[in-house]
């Protein structure tokens, strides 16, 4: 069953991974020509004009965007967070529900397998593809940066891993929510809402102490890129929290799915 799940979800994995890799490929190709000595001063001036809170929100206060690696640490990983988050959200809201939406569940349920087996195969497939996406993008960026110049390899590897935490949690939240309905079109909007609302709350929370508490409402707080840039280490508390949240939503998914009316 896992083999079939991997097969039917391969196309969307290739599309979403290609979007990210294509984006980074363009950056590596055009960055040296865009960021030359002529316009460096202009960009520096522009940066100075931006408020400190805005620079902080995009980690531009920690890293310059003079190099491709610098851009990756600031804006680049935001794209990874967002796109892997959207992919994980859509995957989570569809992977289990698709059988009910397409009414193939009546066939699948009649086979000598348990509902937990069905859910496990689909969840495993989702986690494999999310991890594979992060890995593919990481490997591509590693090669791209190696060709572009010097960069801190350890920090890069840690940075590449961080989107995995937020993505897996988004996947499990959407998976859990999908157990409350029978139609995928109802859940896709919600999953995209979780991703975008989470992202904007995270950005706003960086803009001042009065709104700092908003970060606790954002799933992207789990992917603490800022901490990795500053300390070159993962925040173990956030790693554990991600794991606990994922486990909590997975448990909820199994419990709900085992008692769900499938038609």
């Amino acid at each position: 069953m896992l083999k079939r799940e991997l097969k039917i979800n391969l196309k969307s994995f290739i599309i979403w991974t290609s979007i990210l890799i294509g984006l980074f490929a363009i950056v590596y190709l055009v960055y040296p020509s865009v960021f030359n000595s002529d316009n460096k001063q202009m960009i520096d001036n522009m940066m100075e004009m931006l408020p400190q809170e805005m620079l902080k929100a995009f980690n531009m206060d920690l890293s310059s965007i003079e190099t491709a690696y610098g851009w990756l640490k600031t804006e680049g990983f935001v794209f990874v967070l967002l796109i892997s988050g959207i992919y994980s959200g859509i995957l989570g809201s569809q992977i289990l529900l698709k059988e009910e939406n397409d009414k193939t569940i009546e066939y699948l349920n009649s086979l000598p397998i348990t509902r937990s087996n069905i859910a496990f195969s689909k969840i495993l497939c989702g986690i494999i593809y999310i991890s594979l996406m992060i890995l593919c993008v990481g490997v591509f960026n590693f090669i791209g940066l190696s060709l572009s110049g010097e960069f801190d390899r350890i920090a890069f590897i840690l940075l590449s891993i961080t989107p995995l935490f937020s993505s897996v949690v988004i996947f499990t939240i959407c998976l859990f929510l999908s157990t409350f309905t029978h139609k995928t079109k109802k859940t896709i909007g919600i999953s995209l809402g979780i991703v975008f609302a989470g992202y904007f709350l995270n950005i706003i929370s960086e803009m001042g102490t009065s709104v700092e508490s908003l970060k606790y409402l954002s799933v992207f707080t789990l992917a603490d890129i800022r901490n990795v840039i500053m300390s070159e280490s993962l925040n173990l508390w956030l790693v554990m929290l991600s794991f606990l949240l994922a486990m909590m939503f997975l448990t909820g998914t199994f419990l709900r799915y085992n008692h769900k009316e499938l038609v």
Binding site: D102, Y107, S110, L111, P112
Partner: peptide
């Protein structure tokens, strides 16, 4: 629900058949 042994001796044909189109 999860008695797979019993499930293996049941053949089920629903009124509307939906299978994997791909």
């Amino acid at each position: 629900q999860d008695d797979t042994e019993t499930k293996s001796i049941i053949g089920y044909l629903p009124s509307e058949i939906h299978l994997y189109d791909d």
